[in-house]
């Protein structure tokens, strides 16, 4: 793993040192020429992206990659998944090893500005950092964690939030920083640490990976804002907009009640918003080099946002996470898409 990070980083260094600067449309052109999207995902996080028994990569992040392939090629399977640890992910994107990073990555200002990456303002999952503890410790609140040993994953916002939180509350802690979530989970199970901290959604995902999930509880405190979403390299406006509007199309579809099942009937709908979304009356894809039916293909093959959510992390999944912040704005949540017009 280590070697892989190093290689990726050295690779990034060399590409950056030897290659000419990015051209507009560069990424999109390369994707079309290649015939598939190279998508960076996590290397094993149930609900977000993980490989199931049949070898299929599943999860809300993986499905977002499929939605992009559906939009560009009309075929959701034209994706090559690259599993990345938290530490490897940004170098992989910067160096051009992947076209898009869809790996529960928090949108922060420094990542969005000085690192050769941009977030297309598509928040696939609104999250916040939480704590997972062994019930045996009898801890009811994060405020009781003074002196605790904490397992975290290297190269995450989690590391920074944790330090802030303990400092703000005048508490001490010992961090154990692993490269992979599997190791953090093992660390907690073995008792190397008292607490595991991560984005809350990921705590539920970590918990179902454990031998004895009922032994662990998620504490009530949420200590940060973690808007998770895809990231791309700057400089290619077509690709940037494709990523952004694919997410919005999925949101708008949910808002309008368009689902994978009824999308064909919906083409006959008289609702002008639905007709615009599905490219019946006008062609909104053209401006960014997408086929006229891009949004139709996304919904037909992957489903709307709500469908993807429920299937991967919600009621239809072992995680059973409530919509909460991720409900549509019309239902009291934060998911809100600008209109297609």
């Amino acid at each position: 793993m280590k070697q892989k990070t190093l290689l990726a980083a050295v690779g990034a260094a060399l590409t950056v040192a030897a290659v000419a600067p990015a051209q507009a449309g560069e990424t999109m052109d390369a994707i079309k020429a290649r015939g598939e999207i190279r998508c960076g995902v996590s290397d094993g996080l149930p609900g977000f992206s993980y490989t199931d028994e049949k070898g299929v990569v599943r999860g809300i992040d993986a499905d977002f990659c499929r939605a992009l392939a559906a939009a560009v090629f009309g075929d959701a399977n034209k994706v090559k998944f690259t599993p990345l640890t938290a530490k490897e992910r940004f170098t992989a994107l910067q160096s051009g090893e992947i076209d898009v990073l869809s790996r529960n990555t928090t949108w922060t200002m420094s990542r969005d500005t000085g690192m050769g990456m941009v977030f297309p303002a598509a928040v696939v999952y609104y999250d916040g950092q939480g704590f997972l503890v062994n019930k045996k410790l009898g801890v009811k609140s994060a405020k009781e964690l003074d002196g605790a040993t904490v397992c975290i994953q290297a190269g995450t916002t989690t590391e920074l939030n944790l330090a802030d939180y303990f400092r703000a509350n005048k508490m001490k802690y010992t961090p154990i920083t692993y490269d992979k979530s599997d190791e953090s989970a093992k660390g907690l199970e073995a008792g190397r640490c008292d607490v595991l901290t991560s984005d809350q959604s990921q705590l539920y995902a970590q918990r179902i990976k454990m031998a004895n999930p009922d032994q662990y509880v998620v504490l009530p405190e949420v200590i940060s804002k973690e808007p998770l979403g895809p990231v791309v390299r700057p400089g290619d406006h077509e690709w940037f907009s494709t990523v952004r509007w694919t997410h919005y199309a999925m949101l708008i579809a949910e808002e309008l009640g368009v689902t994978a099942k009824n999308v064909d009937e919906m083409k006959q709908s008289s609702n002008p918003e639905v007709r615009r979304l599905l490219g019946v009356d006008a062609d909104f894809g053209k401006a960014i080099g997408l086929p006229r039916d891009w949004a139709y293909q996304v919904i037909k093959q992957v489903g709307n946002y709500g469908e993807s959510f429920e299937r991967n992390v919600g009621k239809g999944s072992p995680l059973k996470i409530e919509r909460g912040l991720n409900a549509l704005w019309t239902q009291g949540g934060l998911q809100y898409a600008p209109p297609i017009r």
Binding site: A12, R111, G116, T177
Partner: peptide, 23 residues
Amino acid sequence: AAIGYPDLVGLFAGTVLNQTGQA
């Protein structure tokens, strides 16, 4: 880095690289 011992590569060429993006 595989077991979380904070050596130069794990800590600096890993975490710091990732937090700053300056590969």
